[in-house]
Simulated scan of single mutants.
Amino acid sequence: MPDVIFNGPEGRLEGRYHHSKTPNAPIALILHPHPQQGGSMNNKVVYALHHVFSRRGFSVLRFNFRGVGRSQGVFDNGQGELSDAASALDWLQGINANATNCWVAGFSFGAWIGMQLLMRRPEISGFVAVSPPANRQDFTFLAPCPSSGLIVHGDRDEIVPDAAVAKLAAKLSTQKTITVDYTVIPGATHFFTDHLEHLAKTVGGYLDANADRIR
């Protein structure tokens, strides 16, 4: 899984990239949790998501937001990080100009950024949001949500109450043109300690069930 460096809005951004051997493979961008709370592209949930997508033939990029690791710049309360994600998607699309589909997946803060990116980039055809911080961030921009996707949450999440995520999922599910699956993993905390395998199986199962949207 080679290291990559690409240009972002405030300087260089550091990433890890897996290139699929499948011609015209779909692409996936993976976004990490809050930079000021220890989040990075090496987070275990982020790594698990990267692995799930790569095993299913995607070309996959995960990267550090500005100010994390070797990525240049400083934390910008989400606005700058959204710009970073857009630059990362530009780079990923440049390497995979003939990709059949484009997905975004994010964990916690990364899920919030990913959903905003989804609203701004119509080429994104699917999403995975793990533990979206529905109690801490404003998700009202999803009006309407432009694509079907999966929301995953743990029922023992000590940071984001299950009720807040369930309310978000229910709101998105009222739309007629998309389908938002909501899965709660019993016993899982915010960081899915001891439940990463269950998380990977949940996301992988969703991708397998929606293979017709990927190829």
Rank of each mutant, 00 (worst) to 15 (best):
D90R: 15
Q79V: 08
F58M: 12
L150R: 11
A111L: 07
G80H: 00
Q93D: 03
L92T: 01
A111I: 04
N135F: 03
S131R: 12
G80Q: 07
N77Y: 02
A105D: 03
I124W: 00
M119A: 08
N77M: 01
C145Y: 07
S59C: 07
C145E: 09
S108C: 07
A97E: 13
N101Y: 04
G69Y: 08
G67L: 12
S125M: 11
S71M: 09
F63Y: 15
F127P: 08
F65G: 01
P144K: 11
D138Q: 01
C102S: 12
W91L: 08
G114W: 08
D76E: 13
S83N: 10
G106K: 05
Q116A: 05
R70V: 00
A134R: 00
R70I: 01
L142S: 06
I124Y: 10
A99W: 06
E81D: 12
G80N: 13
V130S: 02
G67M: 14
C102N: 09
F65H: 01
G114L: 14
G149W: 05
V68Y: 08
A143K: 10
R62Q: 03
F141W: 06
T100H: 10
E81H: 04
S148L: 12
I95L: 15
F58H: 06
G78A: 08
V128L: 09
W103D: 01
R120L: 13
G110Y: 14
G80I: 01
P132V: 01
S108I: 02
A97L: 14
A99T: 14
L117Y: 11
Q72M: 03
N98L: 11
L117N: 04
S108P: 02
W112H: 12
Q93I: 03
Q93E: 12
F141L: 12
W91K: 12
L82A: 01
W112R: 00
G80T: 05
A111S: 15
W91F: 15
L117S: 05
N135I: 04
R121Q: 14
D76V: 02
R66P: 07
W112I: 01
I95M: 14
V128P: 02
N64P: 09
S87M: 08
T140F: 07
S83H: 00
I113D: 13
A97N: 10
I95K: 15
G73M: 08
F109M: 07
F127I: 05
D76I: 03
N64Q: 11
N96L: 07
S147H: 09
L61F: 04
F65I: 01
